[in-house]
């Protein structure tokens, strides 16, 4: 009786059609724009085919942006997973059930904040003279100035710390919930064999959670692609080009500096191709 219903068609087809149109139209149009030479200031345009792409590979600022983006992905994903697993295991080990609930609530708060809010909160906190996060440094050194956001060597890490503040704490909650779903017998067995607490986690519980942890990392890799809000508010890609990721560079080429929409779109298309290929490949591996 289920099979003969018209429900799957009436429920699925309109939604999928709308999703296809909403996603394919901009995607295909992005490619069309990338093959032209549109600029915001002038209405006319002509077809230049692949010259935007050829220019990109000679643009040192673009190559820098690729490198910054790769660094951003690695730093935020690794740090998020490290914080999540560390805090998740600690909660599992030493927190009572009631305390766990309190921590879980607290740790979810940062990720709910708009990225713009989180960026502001920490931009104030990192202020060299009046910031609350730089205050301990001023206190210890007797008033020396430390400005993490305007030093090329620290700026990327300072911005990344906000991302990890949001996602690492949130994922710690998920790691705890995953640990709680494990059957207690293997842990008991390891304990009877006099395994130390850290050994139990390193050799028993975390390997058992390998699949969900990899999925979690996959989600974080996708979310790390959305770095724009944090960087736009906190550093605008600066100092110099130290924190200029691909989306920041595409935005400034297309809208702030020169209005070269086609050039920016060529960059966006390359990003899109790279992410779709990478994540399709990873997804098939995760599913397998």
């Amino acid at each position: 009786m289920r099979r003969r219903s018209s429900l799957p068609v009436t429920f699925l087809v309109p939604t999928l059609a709308i999703l296809l149109v909403l996603s394919m139209v901009p995607t295909l149009y992005a490619i069309v724009i990338a093959l032209q030479n549109r600029e915001l200031s002038t209405p006319g345009y002509s077809w230049v085919w692949f010259s935007n792409f050829a220019d990109l590979f000679l643009d040192r600022r673009f190559l820098n942006a690729v490198w910054v983006s790769v660094k951003w992905e690695i730093v935020t994903v690794v740090a998020t997973m490290a914080v999540a697993i560390g805090l998740g295991v600690l909660m599992f080990e030493v927190a009572s059930p009631r305390l766990r609930n309190v921590y879980c609530l607290l740790f979810i708060i940062p990720v709910l904040l708009p990225r713009v809010s989180a960026a502001f909160v920490w931009k104030f906190a990192y202020h060299p003279l009046y910031g609350i996060a730089t205050y301990p440094y001023r206190l210890i050194t007797g008033g020396l100035i430390f400005d993490p956001l305007s030093k090329a060597s620290t700026a990327l890490f300072a911005v990344a710390s906000v991302d990890v503040w949001q996602w690492g704490l949130f994922f710690a909650v998920i790691v705890l919930k995953l640990l709680e779903t494990l059957p207690p017998q293997p842990i008991e067995a390891a304990r009877l064999d006099h395994a130390k607490r850290w050994q139990i986690h390193a050799y028993v519980t975390l390997p058992m959670l390998k699949a969900p942890l990899i999925s979690l990392m996959f989600v974080k890799m996708i979310e790390s692609l959305r770095s724009f809000d944090l960087i736009y508010v906190m550093t605008r890609g600066g100092p110099g080009v130290a924190t200029e990721t691909l989306d920041m560079y595409a935005f400034s080429q297309g809208f702030i500096e020169s209005g070269k929409v086609s050039y920016a779109s060529a960059m966006a298309v390359l990003m899109m191709i790279a992410t779709v290929i990478t994540f399709t490949f990873l997804w098939k591996r995760v599913q397998a």
């Binding site: 992005a30 297309g254 966006a268």
Partner: peptide
């Protein structure tokens, strides 16, 4: 996966 810039520009 679609980068937001890639959707927003077109």
């Amino acid at each position: 996966f679609l980068p937001p810039v890639a959707v927003a520009i077109p």
